[in-house]
Design a protein around this nucleic acid. Structure first.
Length: 411
DNA sequence: TTCTACGCCCGCCGTAATCA
DNA sequence: TGATTACGGCGGGCGTAGAA
C-alpha cells in the first residue's frame, strides 16, 4: 500500500490548532510552507479575503502585512509539528504491518503481505486505516493498493482526496495505460517531450514499445520507464529512513553578477556552512569536493578535487572550495555558484584517522559548538564577521529540517 | 476568484565522455 | 583502469501570467 497525506502541511497545521483550542480562520492563513519571514503564496492565500482586501502581496514582509491588517494570523512553518504528525502516522500504520517505509514526510509504503489473516483483505484494511487516520489524526489520505510499490504509488495518485484505489497487474491495461505518459513515475518534463517525438503519448504506448528501441534513445532510463509502464518493479518495503546519501551539495543563484574573487569566496563560504553542517548532521565525512560555476551567459563548468583524508570541517572544505574556484574561474561574471561533497564515509573513520592534527581536533570542536548553537537558537545565531558589512547572506542553502522531508527519486 | 500552465530553481543522483 | 569532468535526469517548491 502507498499512503499519501492530502495537502499535508495545511491539514496538520489546522488539526494542531483545533486540538489546542486555538481559533483558526483558514481564510487568513497566508501559508505554512517556507522559512522566510515574508508572506508566501499558498493554497489558502489564494482564497484569502483579507489578503485581497488589504492588498497584501506575496513576498511582502509579515511586519508590513500586519500593519495593513492587524487581525491577520501569521502561521510560521513548524517542521517539528509536521514530523510529529508524520511519526504519529507511521505509528498508526505499524499496527497493521511491521514493514512501513517512510518515503517522505507525507508519504509512506506499507507491506501488507501475510497480514490478511489479522486484518482482512487489503481493501477493507485500507478503508479501516483511512478512517482511523481521519478520526484519530485529523487529516485525510489517499491509499493506493497493489502488488508492488510503483503501482501502489501510481494508484494513490488517482482521484483525490480521501480515496482508495487499487492497481493490480491485471488492471494496468484498463486503469494505467490510457493515462498520458507524463503521469508515469520517472517520466518528467525532459523525458516526456522525447517520448512524444518517438510517437509515444500514453503509458500504454510506452508499455507496448520495443525496449531495445527505447534503450537506443534514452539509455538505461528507457529500460526503467518501460518496466514501470508494464508494472515491473520489485524493490522491497524497507524500514530504513532512506537510501544512504551519496553526496551533499548546495548551490545558489546570485541576484547580481559576481565579478570579484572576494565576493565569490564569501558566497562559497555561505554555501559551505550549510553543506558542512548537513554533513556533520549525517555523521559523515567526504573526500571529493566539487565547485560548480555558472556564468551570466548561462555557460557552466565545474572542478573537483579528491582529498587524502575525508573531512567534515567547515574551514577545510571552504579552503579546498576556494582553491578549486581559483583554479577553475576564468574571470567571467558569475550568476550561480555551487559546492558539493561526495565520496562519503562515516565520520567515525575520520575521528580515528592517525593523521588528525591537534588543529583538526580544535576545528571539529568549534564546528560542533557552532552547530549546537545554531540548532538551539537558529542558523543566524553565529555568523562570520566577514559577512557583517557585505550584502551577502552568511548562510545559504537548504536547512536541516528540509533534509528530513526530502524524497528520493528512486523507489 | 480560482484554476492551470509554464518556467525557473534547488538538491540530489547517475552516467557517458574524456583524461592521465 | 581509475579519476575527473560534463551533462542531464528526477521530484518538488515557488512565482507569474492568463484563461475560465
Amino acid at each position: 500500500m502507498h499512503i499519501d497525506v492530502n495537502s499535508a502541511f495545511l491539514s496538520w497545521e489546522a488539526v494542531y490548532r483545533l486540538q489546542h483550542g486555538d481559533s483558526l480562520d483558514l481564510r487568513t492563513v497566508p501559508s505554512v510552507v517556507g522559512g522566510d519571514p515574508v508572506i508566501r503564496r499558498g493554497i489558502v492565500l489564494a482564497k484569502s479575503v483579507p489578503a485581497k482586501k488589504y492588498k497584501i502581496k506575496t513576498g511582502e514582509s509579515i511586519f508590513s502585512a500586519l500593519q495593513k491588517c492587524p487581525s491577520l494570523i501569521i502561521v510560521p512553518p513548524r517542521y517539528d509539528l509536521y514530523i510529529q504528525c508524520s511519526n504519529n502516522l507511521i505509528k498508526l500504520l505499524e499496527e497493521y504491518s511491521p514493514a512501513v517505509q517512510r518515503y517522505s514526510v507525507d508519504e509512506c509504503f506499507l507491506d501488507y503481505t501475510n497480514m490478511e489473516y489479522h486484518f482482512g483483505p487489503p481493501l477493507s484494511a485500507a478503508h479501516t486505516i483511512k478512517e482511523r487516520i481521519k478520526k484519530e489524526l485529523g487529516f485525510t489520505v489517499n491509499i493506493g493498493i497493489s502488488s508492488n510499490k510503483l503501482l501502489a504509488k501510481m494508484a494513490s495518485d488517482f482521484q483525490k482526496p480521501d480515496k482508495i484505489h487499487t492497481l493490480y497487474l491485471h488492471e494496468i491495461e484498463e486503469k494505467m495505460w490510457p493515462l498520458p505518459v507524463e503521469d508515469l513515475f520517472m517520466v518528467g518534463r525532459s523525458t516526456a517531450p522525447k517520448l512524444h517525438k518517438l510517437g509515444i503519448y500514453t503509458i500504454g504506448d510506452l508499455a507496448k514499445a520495443n525496449p531495445k528501441f527505447l534503450y537506443q534513445h534514452l539509455k538505461s532510463h528507457g529500460t526503467l520507464i518501460w518496466n514501470f509502464a508494464n508494472g515491473i518493479e520489485n524493490s522491497p518495503v524497507t524500514r530504513e529512513k532512506s537510501a544512504p546519501i551519496k553526496s551533499i551539495g548546495n548551490s545558489t543563484t546570485i541576484s547580481f553578477d559576481v565579478t570579484d574573487q572576494r565576493t565569490a569566496h564569501l558566497i562559497l563560504l555561505s554555501l559551505v556552512e550549510t553543506v558542512a553542517m548537513r554533513l556533520r548532521n549525517e555523521e559523515c565525512c567526504g573526500k571529493l569536493i566539487s565547485v560548480y560555476i555558472k556564468t551570466n551567459d548561462f555557460r557552466h563548468y565545474s572542478h573537483q578535487k579528491k582529498l587524502e583524508i575525508p573531512t567534515d570541517c567547515t574551514n577545510h572544505i571552504f579552503k579546498y572550495a576556494c582553491e578549486l574556484f581559483d583554479e577553475a574561474w576564468k574571470g567571467e561574471p558569475i550568476r550561480q555558484l555551487g559546492v558539493r561533497i561526495s565520496d562519503l564515509c562515516s565520520n567515525q573513520f575520520c575521528q580515528l584517522s592517525l593523521f588528525d592534527s591537534s588543529d583538526t581536533q580544535k576545528q571539529k570542536a568549534v564546528d560542533k559548538s557552532i552547530d549546537q548553537l545554531r540548532m538551539r537558537y537558529g542558523s543566524m545565531a553565529v555568523i562570520r564577521a566577514s559577512f557583517l558589512h557585505s550584502r551577502l547572506k552568511p548562510i545559504t542553502g537548504g536547512i536541516l529540517e528540509e533534509d528530513y522531508a526530502s524524497m528520493s527519486s528512486i523507489l
